[in-house]
């Protein structure tokens, strides 16, 4: 029963290229950066490390082949959002370049790797989980205040510095909402982290990010999201029918942590806490210093190397 809404006129490829040419920087990035090693591969592109020749600073470069992008307009969205929403818990966007058929986006590089390496290779305690949740919630409060929904919160999109700093990345699928259009319906995200209202194709808003944060908290407890052993379609079915997922050995968690999870993973969107409310939750008072993440990061990198 989605309200009748005028369909957004789809931009043609030429219009998209025109817009990109306005946004991107002039010049050949090959002259400005020395590409080093490949560090990531995602649906939207490949990520490399690189050295900025002039300063010696290490950066990350995300390369996307425009002809392979099913939804090019999302790329423009990503560039604009990252450029206009600078925050200590958001990976800093530096510049972007058109290189033939490819778009290169240069960003701040965080050598600690992604949170996925840490959750799959090490064991986190509640103090460390609380610290990560607080940092991500700070980014979400900032984004939601600026009418941006990330829509793809998961450990893969959380990058870590060697000092334990925690930053959100990959705005390729975010949505900018407005008073006229404060809700969305398109199914966007990663199935296992999707909120029930997204899966059941209802109108959704910023609180989908809070649900995904709750699933990410389960990753930090169990090493992976619920239903990852199932295929994606079945996982969507289970999210739609089960609602709040079971947490193995939940009784081993502290009551305050259990309550924090309940506030993130409430199927009733109105009851589900916002980022602002969660930042006041007592669980975050258990947070240990970010430096306590350093041993986990080192251990995760060792384990990844040995694979």
């Amino acid at each position: 029963n989605t309200a009748a809404r005028p369909k957004k006129k789809k931009m043609s490829d030429e219009e998209i290229m025109e817009k990109l040419r306005i946004i991107v920087a002039v010049g050949d990035p090959n002259k400005k950066y020395t590409k080093m090693e490949k560090i990531g591969q995602g649906a939207s592109g490949t990520v490399y490390t690189a050295i900025e020749i002039a300063t010696g600073m290490e950066v990350a470069i995300k390369q996307m082949n425009l002809s392979q992008q099913p939804k090019k307009e999302l790329i423009i969205n990503e560039l604009l959002v990252m450029r206009e929403n600078k925050h200590p818990n958001i990976v800093n966007y530096l510049d972007s370049y058109l290189v033939g058929e490819e778009l290169w986006v240069t960003m701040e590089y965080l050598p600690g790797g992604s949170l996925t390496d840490v959750v799959t290779e090490t064991c986190m305690d509640e103090g460390q989980i609380a610290a990560v949740c607080r940092e991500v919630l700070q980014a979400l409060e900032f984004l939601h205040y600026n009418h941006v929904i990330h829509r793809d919160i998961k450990s893969d999109n959380i990058l870590l510095g060697m000092d334990g700093s925690v930053k959100l990345t990959d705005f390729g699928f975010c949505a900018q909402i407005s008073p006229e259009q404060s809700k969305r319906t398109t199914m966007v995200g990663t199935p296992y982290w999707m909120a029930p209202e997204v899966v059941t194709r209802k109108q959704y808003g910023p609180k989908v990010d809070i649900w995904s944060l709750g699933i990410m908290a389960i990753e930090m407890i169990e090493g992976e999201p619920p239903y990852l052993n199932e295929n994606p379609l079945r996982a969507l079915y289970l999210i739609a029918t089960n609602g709040k997922p079971e947490i193995k050995e939940k009784e081993k968690l502290s009551p305050v942590f259990q309550d924090f999870l309940d506030k993130c993973l409430d199927v009733d969107v109105d009851k589900r806490f916002s980022a602002c409310e969660l930042l006041k939750h007592p669980f975050l008072k258990l947070a240990r210093p970010l430096a306590s993440l350093h041993p986990l990061i080192v251990a995760a990198k060792e384990a990844a190397k040995s694979h």
Binding site: A43, F173, M187, G189, T190, N231, P232, L236
Partner: peptide
Amino acid sequence: SKKYERKKRYTVVGNPYWM
């Protein structure tokens, strides 16, 4: 199967091919 496992974590937009 490692490739399949990695693809499970890919982001989807609209109706993915497997729906």
